[in-house]
Amino acid sequence: MEIAVKINGEQHRHDVEPRTLLVHYIRDTVGLTGTNIGCDTSSCGACTIHLNGESVKSCTMFAVQADGEELLTIEGLAASVNATDGQMHPMQEAFRSCHALQCGYCTPGMVMASVSLLEENPNPNEQEVRQGLEGNLCRCTGYHNIVKAVLECAQGGAK
């Protein structure tokens, strides 16, 4: 089945099997491997992307369901806020300055979920951040610095 999807501002057209998951399409067909797969039950959130501006676990959708839609992955995040010259999205900057990543595997999904969290709730308290990221698992950081990064980003950027 042929689909047309806009990913990170670029139009893609592909013939996909109806059963192909969106995450497999993004990784294997489009070749954007920043989005990771960490489980097989939609529990870990490593594959979180934005669909029409809202975060979604891309393993919970078929590629065909994204036909005609607009996607944003980690590779397009900095450009989406017109960051230039090696600059990053404020959330990416906050993750870096707070040492909110170690092995990096959950990171793209975690960053995308965090951006979406602040769009819905621009000024969350710690508990709201923790609840908001409950669906994104991290094994390395104990979440401490991730929560710190999101709160610092909400407060106007990394310190």
Binding site: T33, E75, G104, V111
Partner: peptide, 23 residues
């Protein structure tokens, strides 16, 4: 001193390159 990680800009902007990502 709290030197920020050299690995992070790549990990944060395009994702790290894990074995399944190797091309």
């Amino acid at each position: 001193t709290r030197v920020l990680r050299k690995e992070d800009p790549k990990f944060l902007t395009e994702g790290a390159t894990y074995t399944a990502d190797i091309s």
